[in-house]
Structures are given as structure tokens and as C-alpha cells.
């Protein structure tokens, strides 16, 4: 199987504390994966490494058909290569309109001078309208992002991620702070997205992970403890010990 993202033997320590310890992880081009683990298992650090925010002390991260190393690239280059990241707390630009937020995320040349020369076109307007409709913000494109409700901001951020057209989506705790109905909607969306691209969901909530119905990777103390279907990993005695106390 050719993997889209290949993380092999990665370790990183902060102040002598090993946050990630010889971690290896693969994901295919169109796959949904849930990453679970207790607090401090290294979930966020794992995402930081993949997106270039943190440099690992050892190991390698390779990407795409040509197995390019991501370690030499900065955050922006990695994002342009096709890795999108959704943060735990919705981070949208509150001072600007929904349309401006989405326009910024639209796939286009990111070079400052190209951005200077960029002009809105009917097709870009239409793309923004489509995305807004898709995430349920159809009537809100001219509102300031800061005026939206918490849930709507989450959706706007998802819309922005879609506008980026990433090949790999890293989603950090999407269900946090959402109502039951919104969770349903999110599950459906994530599953649909995973038909055409790779999606990694980092989640605490077992119910939500069950709903995603996908392969699960359990992290513990910075390395992979178990991998497989949710039923498979929840039967693993080590996983039970970690989750239910020792």
C-alpha cells in the first residue's frame, strides 16, 4: 500500500520529557483515521510535527507520491503541499467577513505579489457561495466572522479548510462544544470528505469515534499502543489499562 503520509520512528522531547517516542504512523490517500489517547499521549505534538510547528529530534516524515521529507519545510510550505489543519478552538479572523475569510483560504498562489494582483472573479465568488452553502452559512457571507455563534465559527473554519482543498486534513477534537445535531452533521461531513482525501481526526470522545466507524490509532506516552478497528482496540488489555486506570 502506498501511503500519503508516512511518519517513521519520530521522537521529540521537551526539557527532557519525551512527548513523542519512536512513533510511526501511515495513512493512505483516501482514508479516515481516528487518533485517540489520554491526555499527554502526544496527540497535539503529533499534529505539530506533521504540520511543521515542531521539529522532531529524530525520525522522518515523508509525504506524497515522491516521498518528500516534510522536515525541511516550514508551516506555510507544508500547508501549500496539501496538509490542512483544524484547531481545537475555532480560529477564524473575527475582524473580517465570512466571505473574506473564505476567499483567503481559496486555493490560489500565496506569493505576496500574486496576492496583490489577485482580483475577485465570478468563479471565485461562486466558489465562496458554494462553500458557504455547504457548511450552512449561505445567508451569512457578508457578516463579520466575530458575530457568528461558536458552532458557526467551527463550520466556517471547516469551510476554509475545504477551500484550501487539502489532500490530508488534520482535525483536532471537532466535536468539542458541539450539540448533538451538529455532531451528526460533522460525522457525515468527515466521512464524506474521507472518500476523496485522507482525514485524521484527533478525538477524546469515544461515542464520536464509534460513529466515525473507521480505523483507530491509540497513542500512549508518545507512541502507538494499538491500531485497528474500535472494537479491536477496546478489547486490547493494554488499552483498557491506560483508559480505565491502572
Amino acid at each position: 500500500m502506498s501511503a500519503l503520509l508516512e511518519v517513521s520512528g519520530v521522537s521529540v522531547s521537551f526539557d527532557g520529557f519525551r512527548a513523542i517516542n519512536n512513533l510511526s504512523f501511515n495513512i493512505g490517500a483516501a482514508e479516515l483515521r481516528a487518533v485517540i489517547g489520554p491526555n499527554g499521549a502526544g496527540k497535539t505534538t503529533f499534529m505539530d510535527i506533521v504540520t511543521g510547528k515542531t521539529r522532531p529530534d529524530e525520525g522522518d516524515v515523508r509525504w506524497g507520491e515522491y516521498s518528500r521529507s516534510l522536515l525541511k519545510m516550514n508551516e506555510a510550505q507544508i500547508a501549500r503541499a496539501g496538509i490542512g489543519r483544524k484547531f481545537q478552538r475555532p480560529t477564524v479572523f473575527e475582524d473580517q467577513s465570512v466571505a473574506d475569510n473564505m476567499t483567503m483560504a481559496l486555493r490560489a498562489n500565496r506569493n505576496p505579489f500574486s496576492v496583490l494582483g489577485w482580483r475577485p472573479s465570478p468563479s471565485s465568488d461562486q466558489r465562496v457561495a458554494e462553500l458557504a452553502a455547504e457548511v450552512g452559512l449561505a445567508g451569512q457571507v457578508n457578516r463579520k466572522a466575530g458575530e457568528l455563534s461558536h458552532g458557526q465559527k467551527q463550520w466556517l473554519e471547516i469551510g476554509m479548510l475545504l477551500a484550501q482543498e487539502p489532500r490530508l486534513l488534520l482535525v483536532d477534537e471537532p466535536a468539542a462544544g458541539m450539540t448533538l445535531a451538529e455532531r451528526e452533521q460533522t460525522t457525515t461531513l468527515l466521512r464524506r470528505l474521507a472518500e476523496t482525501r485522507a482525514v485524521v481526526v484527533v478525538e477524546h470522545d469515544m461515542d464520536f469515534v464509534r460513529r466515525l466507524n473507521c480505523k483507530v490509532t491509540v497513542l500512549h506516552q508518545g507512541s502507538v499502543l494499538a491500531e485497528g478497528s474500535l472494537d479491536h482496540v477496546t478489547r486490547n488489555p493494554q488499552v483498557i489499562e491506560v483508559y480505565l486506570g491502572r
Partner: peptide, 12 residues
Amino acid sequence: DDETRVRFLGYP
């Protein structure tokens, strides 16, 4: 407002 977020959008 949030330069880290802009980096993750792919802007240099």
C-alpha cells in the same frame, strides 16, 4: 490578528 493561523493557510 493571528499569524500562526495564516501560516497554516499556506501564506508565507
